[in-house]
Write a protein that binds this DNA or RNA. Structure first.
Length: 575
DNA sequence: GCCGTTTTCGGCCCGACTGTTTTCAGTCG
């Protein structure tokens, strides 16, 4: 038997769906393959643990046989047959806005379009506009889509989009005719990369708002300008597309829910509605029997009408939330956070003094903080040597007197050196309250080397936490070769805390690993790694990511009181 | 292709906008 795993099978089903789409097959047939792939993705079990695939709702005899054939032979006849019928170069063309399976299929069959080059030529020679169902405008739009496709990445990192989003929000704040508005879409769900921004706006004066929106600064192009929907592209570092939906206020909650998605979450909600004799649209919930349309003051009320507790946006990913949220789920919330255990000051590469950081943390209502500047190995960040570290401890002692209600842990973000040794001796570490170990060098080492370094750090009785465990920078850098499963196992064994670094560039660990860590009983700290005052607000993104990973307050040590936290830190040394 | 307290056919989530039409198909979210 060939060595096929579940990911391979999911990819097979998705590939089949794409090829069927290009054949302009029945959309429901295509959907059936996509659904089967998603069901496997969501299911906890590995491929070997399924005894009979057809028992799963959504996988029938045909799909099960296709999967079986693939597992046994190592290739799929179904897939190969389709691949013979569809040129490979057509597949990426589906990403061009305005082109779907049906149009592409027609372009292929009637104009021999097989890839982006032949499509561009067909447009330039005005063959496309001559086709029935196509016109001059479509031809122009395809050409423009090709230009854009060549120069722009498909999705942008959430950190970049957060900045654009804030800019748009401050513009919306200036429009008086707007009653209320909210970001929606994948930005609201805090996906790691975001394709475009969606805003829902309620108003009594559609015309005024619409006029104001299309006068927003930096607009490059207006894509759609309808009664209730305005789509624009604004120029930032990249071009960013933004959709605005205008609604009357009583429709706000259902519209917001609708455009927050995810798409699959909405499908699941509508299926649930249907089973209850109701029909969901963005304008409300229709009772099929009476014909009444119900609207809601808030999303809470909306969920409640379906027998559900409030599902936060970042949890709406169609991975079992509808069942789980029939009862209230105990998830961590921003208001539960009592301290931040990773931040920098002017002693290394931070922008604020130690005393100022104590003030800012106090302003946030926290009970404790850890001062964790870089260690000496990190010269570029002006890392602390033993002497400066001891001087800093004295400064911490001074600031403690000024803030008697705040517990300040003396700490360090200590480098794990390329050879696996630590930047400080145990005698130095023993003088500190909170020791973070992290990797900032030799990212290209093999998995064995990286794991050796991390293991050395976790084995050390004075190391409390591993920071940004994978080192990834979203959309920019992969991170080092960590086997996170092994890392989690080792963290459990050594009672080492793992960080959820809340900086939106990092969000490290991500939700998938957080979920696993919690299942294994590993404690997590949500930290901002603040280098300046405003960075302390990253805690909100951190908490969202934590909830995406289903983290409950008990798994998150900075929801603990000072005393509880201290006893957790003690466990490490005493293990 | 999948499913069934509509159970082997007929529906599968719903609506806005654009472009090409002259009543609607395709795409998108």
């Amino acid at each position: 038997m060939a060595d096929i795993n579940k990911k391979d099978v999911i990819k097979l089903l998705e590939d089949i769906a794409v090829l069927l789409e290009l054949k302009a097959e029945n959309p429901f047939k295509i959907q059936a393959y996509r659904k089967a792939a998603q069901i496997l993705e969501t299911d906890q079990r590995s491929l070997r643990e399924f005894d009979d695939l057809t028992k799963i709702n959504g996988i029938g005899a045909k799909t099960a046989a296709t999967i079986q054939d693939y597992i046994e032979n190592g290739y799929s006849e179904t897939l190969q047959a389709l691949q013979k019928q569809v040129p490979e170069g057509l597949i990426p063309l589906l990403d061009l806005p305005g082109l779907g399976g049906k149009k592409l299929s027609k372009l292929y069959h009637e104009l021999d379009v097989i890839d982006i080059t032949s499509l561009e030529e067909a447009c330039q020679n005005e063959k496309v506009s001559a086709l029935k169902g196509f016109g001059k405008k479509t031809e122009e739009n395809i050409l423009k889509a090709i230009q854009d496709y060549k120069k722009q990445p498909e999705r942008l990192p959430v950190d970049d989009m957060l900045k654009v989003s804030k800019q748009v929000e401050s513009y919306l704040d200036s429009i008086e005719a707007i009653d209320r508005y909210s970001i929606a879409g994948s930005m609201r769900r805090l996906r790691e990369t975001v394709k475009d921004l969606d805003f829902i706006i309620s108003t009594k004066d559609f015309d005024t708002v619409r006029k104001a929106l299309i006068e927003m600064p930096n607009i490059k192009e207006i894509i759609a300008n309808g009664q209730t929907k305005i789509s624009i592209i604004i120029t930032w570092d990249y071009d960013v597309s933004i959709d605005f939906r205008l609604v009357e206020d009583h429709q706000f909650a259902t519209t917001l829910h609708h455009f927050t998605g995810s798409k699959d979450h909405n499908v699941a909600m509508r299926q649930r509605a249907k089973a209850q004799g109701k029909k969901i649209s963005e304008y409300g919930v229709l009772d099929i029997e009476t014909g009444d349309i119900e609207t809601f003051e808030s999303e809470e009320d909306f969920f409640q009408s379906f027998g559900l507790t409030y599902i936060p946006p970042e949890r709406r990913e169609a991975d079992g939330e509808l069942d789980r949220f029939e009862e209230a789920v105990d998830l961590v919330e921003s208001s539960m956070i009592k301290g931040d255990l990773h931040m920098h000051t002017t002693w290394s590469d931070g922008a604020e003094s130690l005393e100022d950081m104590a003030q800012f943390v106090t302003d946030k209502g926290y009970h404790y903080m850890a001062v964790t500047d870089h260690s000496k190995f990190l010269r570029v960040a002006h890392g602390l040597n033993e002497k400066r570290l001891r001087d800093q401890i004295k400064e911490i002692e001074r600031v403690r007197q000024l803030y008697p209600d705040l517990t300040i842990f003396s700490g360090i973000e200590m480098d794990i050196l390329p050879d696996g040794t630590l930047d400080f001796d145990d005698t130095v570490l023993a003088e500190l309250d909170f020791v973070i170990a992290s990797i900032h060098s030799s990212f290209n080492q093999t998995e064995d080397q990286i794991m050796y370094r991390l293991n050395q750090a976790m084995e050390n009785p004075y190391v409390h936490m591993i920071a940004h465990p994978t080192g990834r920078i979203i959309g920019k850098r992969e991170g080092y070769a960590v086997d996170v499963d092994k890392l989690i196992t080792k963290a459990k064994e050594t009672k080492t805390i793992l960080e959820l670094n809340a900086n939106p560039k990092r969000l490290d660990l991500n939700s998938v690993w957080l979920k696993k860590a919690q299942e294994k009983g590993v404690k997590i700290a949500i930290n901002t790694d603040a280098h300046r005052k405003s960075n302390l607000d990253f805690i909100n993104e951190g908490v969202k990511m934590a909830r995406k990973g289903w983290l409950n307050p008990d798994s998150v040590i900075n929801t603990y009181s000072v005393d509880q936290l201290k006893s957790v830190l003690k466990e490490k040394k005493n293990r």
